[in-house]
Design a protein around this nucleic acid. Structure first.
Length: 115
DNA sequence: GTGCTGACTGCAG
DNA sequence: ACTGCAGCCAGCA
């Protein structure tokens, strides 16, 4: 195939696909996505993809948090409280910038998609 | 072309 | 229990 001029990289595209598959009211971690893509060590790059995801409204980046369920990327939203409000709007409780019942709300692509 | 930073994670001390 | 370091990819000076 020819080079994809529109696609920045397959990695980003894959990340977007997975993030878009996150069901409402659920959250996942950068590492989970990276691991699902087979690049567990590239978790940082997943977060970087989220930064570029701002160009795509279909990317619920607010559903993506770090492994501790902490809203580490909230600062990258329009407002530092935007992420929390979006999550709360979907039924996800966020206290002290941290997702409550993160273990239960955690959506693992490798587990849900592979099921 | 080289080097640093960044929305992370895991291991070692 | 907490802190520090290394690895990965992409964008920018």
């Amino acid at each position: 195939m020819q080079k994809n001029t529109e696609s920045p990289s397959t990695f980003f595209n894959d990340v977007y696909e997975v993030v878009k598959l996150i069901p409402k009211g659920r959250v996942t971690s950068y590492g989970a996505i990276a691991r699902y893509l087979g690049t567990a060590k590239s978790s940082r790059t997943v977060g970087y993809a989220m930064n570029a995801a701002h160009a795509i409204p279909e990317i619920p980046a607010h559903r993506v948090v770090n492994r501790n369920g902490l809203l580490t990327g909230k600062h990258h939203f329009a407002t530092p409280t935007r992420m929390q409000e979006l999550l709360a709007s979907e039924g996800v409780k966020v206290v002290n910038d941290q997702v409550e019942c993160f273990s239960e709300l955690f959506w693992d692509p490798m587990r849900e998609l592979s099921l």
